[in-house]
Design a protein around this nucleic acid. Structure first.
Lengths: 147, 147
DNA sequence: CCTAATAGTTAGGGTACCTAACAGTCAAGC
DNA sequence: GCTTGACTGTTAGGTACCCTAACTATTAGG
């Protein structure tokens, strides 16, 4: 917005970007084979709490609508979600999870969470505290970036 | 290593995975157009402190050797790195940054750091503290995952 | 030497994004 | 009521970045 960056913030920004980069690789390697991909799991988790429209899914995932459509069609072909026109607005499409989808999310999340939990076991109590405290901050930064 | 996950860690693991997912999208969207891509910048930053072999680059980036070769060739074509056989081992290839590469890293980092710094400006002092404290923990988790 | 291990490259393939162009539906104003 | 413009998705075509498998070249051990 303005043009005068605080030098201290710039240093933190650099570290933060480095952590993000590491996170990208970590996230990628968290993908067990023969399972849902990370992108599919993210989408499926999102609709598991209730049906959503394609546009909302795209917005929440931070991707464009055509990319969301593509993923949704794949999941539909796999029998994990259903697509039907929104009764209130025939332009829109409601995406809902199937019971097979629920099962898939369940087991995929469980497996990945176990993988991560195992990594967290090596942390000290203080480190766990520090990590837990920072996660909401990261979410906040992300949502302010959505604009 | 064992089979009894601490339920508290599992909860944190879930939140952490979600933060990672957000981080992935954030990192990607940090890519200004007409600039280096995130992957290219990561690689280029890595060799900017001194020449490295292809295999080392791949290992540090957490990708396979052919993927590294591909990126390196692109960067070479763009005049940002040079490739030459390692004098001590003709099988190996030394990758070094050029002055144009150094300039590109410099400006790309500066631009991205400024973007992130701007996001950080919206945080409270406490949130900044919390974020700063967690970054080393994230790095630690990542390096323990490399194994 | 000859064989096994090591370092990269090439070839072929897949996922997940993107923009641009399109079709269908809704809503507002004349 | 019909047209116009805004909105919701889908289709088409393209790109970035990663992978495995197969190959070449070099090194090192027996």
């Amino acid at each position: 917005m303005n043009g005068s960056p605080d030098p201290r913030l710039t240093g933190l920004a650099k570290e933060f970007r480095e952590a993000l980069r590491l996170g990208v690789y970590m996230f990628r390697r968290l993908d067990p084979e023969g399972d849902l991909t990370a992108a599919q799991l993210s989408l499926l988790s999102m609709v598991s709490d209730g049906g959503l429209r394609v546009g909302d899914i795209a917005k929440n995932l931070g991707i464009k609508v055509p990319s969301a459509t593509e993923q949704i069609i794949k999941l539909e072909r796999a029998g994990l979600v259903t697509r039907r026109p929104d009764p209130d607005d025939s332009r829109a499409v409601q995406v809902a999870i199937t019971s097979a989808g629920t099962d898939a999310v369940e087991s995929a999340n469980q497996r990945r969470n176990a993988m991560v939990a195992e990594l967290l076991e090596d942390l000290s109590a203080q480190e766990i505290e520090q990590l837990a405290a920072a996660l909401p901050v990261i979410s906040k930064i992300n949502s302010s970036f959505q604009n």
